[in-house]
């Protein structure tokens, strides 16, 4: 009789402990996944942006997509190495969208039309490259990741 009673108590204790563990896991897991997703998105975009910079610095045009998107700008850079590099990446997240700003710097001065054309084609390149090589999708001109729209803002600055 005593033995049976003890057994019942242990089972209830275990249930409580299990419940606490489960709640803890549920709390940790969602924020962990969220963080993991943000880090992935930023890493993908950073890698892609630095590929675009490497391609522009190298000065060799290729027919391979998506690199061909940068060929017009590469031609107007006229064989000069502008030493582009990814300076910073900013992430601003809301409940429905992620706003990512990529800042690319060059020590040389570029004219305004060239800068806006570069910004535009680097953005197109990143969207095309990331949607093709990773598990992020494309919705028209924007990237989509697990139901959130990723808005890219590329800026080329002297610095």
């Amino acid at each position: 009789m005593l033995k049976l009673n003890r057994k019942g108590q242990t089972a209830i204790e275990t249930l409580f402990i299990l419940a606490i563990i489960m709640t803890g896991i549920a709390m940790v897991l969602s924020s962990y996944l969220n963080e993991n997703r943000d880090v992935s998105v930023v890493t993908y975009i950073r890698a892609s942006a630095s590929h675009a910079c490497d391609y522009l610095n190298m000065g060799v045009q290729t027919s391979e997509s998506p690199y061909s998107l940068l060929n017009n700008d590469l031609a107007s850079l006229n064989g000069t190495n502008y030493q582009f590099r990814v300076m910073s990446i900013g992430l601003n997240e809301t409940s429905t969208a992620m706003n990512i700003s990529v800042s690319i710097s060059t020590p040389f001065v570029l004219n305004t039309s060239m800068v806006s054309s570069l910004e535009n084609s680097i953005k197109l390149f990143i969207v095309e490259d990331v949607s093709r090589n990773t598990n992020m999708g494309k919705n028209g001109t924007n990237l989509v990741y697990s139901g959130k729209i990723v808005r890219l803002n590329v800026s080329v600055v002297k610095g």
Binding site: V28, L29, Y32, L33, N36, S40, T43, Y44, A47, H51, D54, Y55, M58, V60, T62, E64, Y67, N133, T134, N135
Partner: peptide
């Protein structure tokens, strides 16, 4: 959780191989 991070890293690394192959040809030229 650790596996999830590892899988993510591996995924990123494999997607980089296509880029590196192209950059190797570009450097040769």
């Amino acid at each position: 959780l650790i596996l999830l991070t590892l899988v993510n890293l591996t995924y990123l690394a494999t997607s980089e191989t296509a880029h590196s192959e192209m950059f190797s040809t570009i450097s040769e030229v």
